[in-house]
Amino acid sequence: MDTIYFLVQQMMYFSIPLLVVALGGMFSERSGVTNIALEGIMIIGAFTGILFINMFQGMLPGQPILILAIIIAAATGIIVSLTHAFASINMKADQVISGTAINMFAPAFAIYVARMIRTVQQIPFVNQFRIEKVPVLGDIPLLGGLFFRNAYITTYLGFAILIISWVVLYKTRFGLRLRACGEHPQAADSVGINVYKMRYIGVAISGALAGIGGLIFVIPTSTNFNATVAGYGFLALAVLIFGQWNPFKILLAAFFFGLMKTIASAYSGIPVLSALDIPNEVYKMIPYIATLIVLAFTSKNSQAPKAEGIPYDKGSR
């Protein structure tokens, strides 16, 4: 039983960032803009958030500083994502190219700034954010062990973002308009929706969530930031597609990917798996292979937004 508690707690550290970033990607793609810059935005968000924690740690207590860092990460994420929005919405540039540029820019920028102000590229921080046990809830027999011990507030933030995303996308006028822009921007425009504005908002939301995702990926899994988020932005993209652009399917996909990552890093502690003696790289490969297989089966009638990746041009037919 302790093994299962441990696995679930570990899985949350991997799954929640994937969930948050993939939801971000969902807003961007549902508005019609492909965002492969998620990886780069995560790095920038983690960089500013961790830098803030590094500078102000000790002056403020643990949880408030984390919340402030999350806000800063989200804000920088939005700023970076706006460059992508400008290229892909106003300039009608190839969205994959501007995303690639951001992915290349982000780690270089993080290393450059870190080394210029601190002479080394790693930024250390003290992990004072882990919650041993949530009062009252941590004592619930089964659920307490699974979700309310050794947790971070970011876990609950992740679930909150999931529910808000679902409500916004399916239960509000804004969500309907956003989806319309991703499916058929000409039709949306004809009924008076400002396609450019909706797409800017979609990309900005993805920037905010990717920035947060970068920070909450680094905090539970490391004690210093080294200008990388280990490919989680690309993995989140896979989660998004695996989850077929639907919030709750994205949650399931994020759990699946998180579980595989957990097994890859902790399988030697699980008796059944360590007896199998499979190299841990195999576990690391499984999410990617599974994504390819799922894509092969679903791409013929994919749920992808129809106008995704195509710049909207008012003059075109």
């Binding site: 993209l237 896979a238 597609i241």
Partner: peptide
Amino acid sequence: FYNVNVVISCIMMNYIGMYL
């Protein structure tokens, strides 16, 4: 044959290749 987006499948193949 399956209409899979090349960008996504290539990203997956990058990681599979690296781990392999």
